[in-house]
Amino acid sequence: MKYLKHKLYGSLFNLFKIFPVSENRISFIIDSNESFKGNLDYIKKEFERRGNFEFNFFYKDKLSLGSFKKLATSQYVFLNDNFFPMAFMSFKNQAKVVQLWHAPGASKKFGGSVASPDELEMLSKISDNTDYLITSSKRIEDYYAEAFQIDKSKIKALGLPRLDYYFENHDLDKIKSEFCKRYGCDSNKKIILYAPTFRDERKYNNIFDYLDLKSFNEILGKEYVLALRLHPKIRDFYDGNIESSEDYVDCSDYESEQELMMISDVLITDYSSIMIEFAILNKPILFFIYDLENYLATERGFYYDFKTTVPGKLVYTSEELTDAIKNKDFDKDRLSSFTKTQFDEIDGQSSKRVVDFLLNRGR
């Protein structure tokens, strides 16, 4: 009964296998809110450069017979996140189903690395119906094989398409100016982006119980503005009040996290995977880990030793954090080894590699 709706979904889809595959049709499976769309946009643009293709966005919760038919007759099908009906959907042999996955690298354990036996079985069925899983590095293949319960022969380290964004031309002065105008901050100051992740234990989500904002701004306020970007779940598990003030700006509603990273001079985070993407920018990262021992004991864990691997200095108190920024003590030596593990190539050519691979029929 647990997976009945996914089975029914798959059964309905499979009725449309009677129709032939259209060689120029490409489908992207996506949520209605278009979350995690970045990879798909970049793949679409790359195919547009190659020829005359028909693109179809298949919305998971807007079902119609026409949408099922287009999906079933697509030459290429791309996913960017989990889609459990895939366990029961059978595509024709000519079709290639590609999981791009929205997150770069490997950090916190996920999927099959922390799943129950029933979930492992479901992940394995999904992977049976997936032709390729795209990752950012061969060095993390074992982690992805476990997380997706997929054969390593299907894993291709071709890079994350949406990271090509960082190699395009952007008017960063304009982006920063518009950001500061929107949030009422001084565009002459450097931006410190603080992006804490969500904790299951409510008290540790009260970030301002641990960060002394008054002292932080007294010491750093002339040079920096603090921009806060919260994990979406924190507000549901937070006892205090998080509103923009003169002490910081709350930019949690800012649409493009990539723009924020580009205009920020320093990142403060903790256990968030944002560290992986920010690391390719070769800018300082500080890890404000006031609850490290509790997090390691109670949360899902990492694919590596956190203390010795993350790409920046570890700080445990507000005073240590402020001192590190003031003295520019960032321990950037860790950045190089970390990015070499997480990425085979950092060159803005990931979309091209993925499309080349597919058009060359997996060669």
Score class of each variant (00 low, 15 high):
171 D>I: 04
19 F>W: 11
56 N>T: 08
329 D>K: 05
187 S>G: 05
147 A>T: 11
38 G>A: 10
121 E>W: 03
126 I>S: 12
300 R>I: 08
242 I>V: 13
135 T>W: 04
212 D>V: 07
358 L>P: 00
275 M>H: 10
262 M>D: 09
354 V>E: 00
17 K>C: 06
297 A>E: 07
12 L>C: 09
106 A>K: 11
30 I>F: 11
159 G>E: 12
316 Y>T: 07
314 L>C: 03
139 R>A: 04
309 T>E: 15
327 N>W: 14
11 S>H: 07
244 S>H: 10
122 M>Q: 12
20 P>D: 03
305 D>T: 10
231 H>F: 03
114 V>T: 12
60 K>R: 13
156 K>S: 04
77 V>S: 05
124 S>C: 04
182 R>C: 01
298 T>N: 15
104 P>A: 14
251 C>Y: 05
349 Q>S: 03
105 G>D: 13
53 F>H: 11
201 E>T: 14
12 L>K: 15
192 I>P: 00
265 D>I: 03
304 Y>A: 07
226 L>K: 14
159 G>P: 08
288 F>V: 05
167 F>Y: 11
184 G>S: 08
206 N>G: 10
145 A>P: 07
102 H>V: 01
93 N>M: 03
329 D>Q: 06
360 N>K: 14
215 S>P: 00
348 G>E: 02
60 K>F: 01
329 D>C: 09
225 V>Q: 15
42 Y>C: 00
33 N>I: 06
35 S>P: 01
259 E>G: 09
351 S>M: 06
87 A>Y: 01
100 L>T: 06
111 G>S: 10
9 Y>G: 02
345 E>N: 14
108 K>D: 04
214 K>V: 08
343 F>V: 01
299 E>S: 11
289 I>N: 15
117 P>K: 09
196 P>K: 06
4 L>H: 07
88 F>N: 00
47 F>Q: 02
121 E>C: 02
201 E>Q: 09
29 I>R: 13
182 R>L: 14
167 F>S: 04
94 Q>S: 12
320 E>N: 13
130 T>P: 09
69 K>L: 09
178 E>P: 10
309 T>M: 15
175 I>H: 04
190 K>N: 13
311 P>D: 07
319 E>M: 02
331 D>H: 08
143 Y>E: 09
306 F>M: 08
308 T>Q: 15
126 I>R: 07
111 G>E: 09
160 L>W: 06
146 E>H: 05
165 Y>F: 12
144 Y>H: 15
226 L>W: 12
352 K>A: 08
298 T>W: 07
144 Y>N: 10
42 Y>A: 04
343 F>N: 05
4 L>T: 06
293 E>G: 02
116 S>L: 05
360 N>D: 15
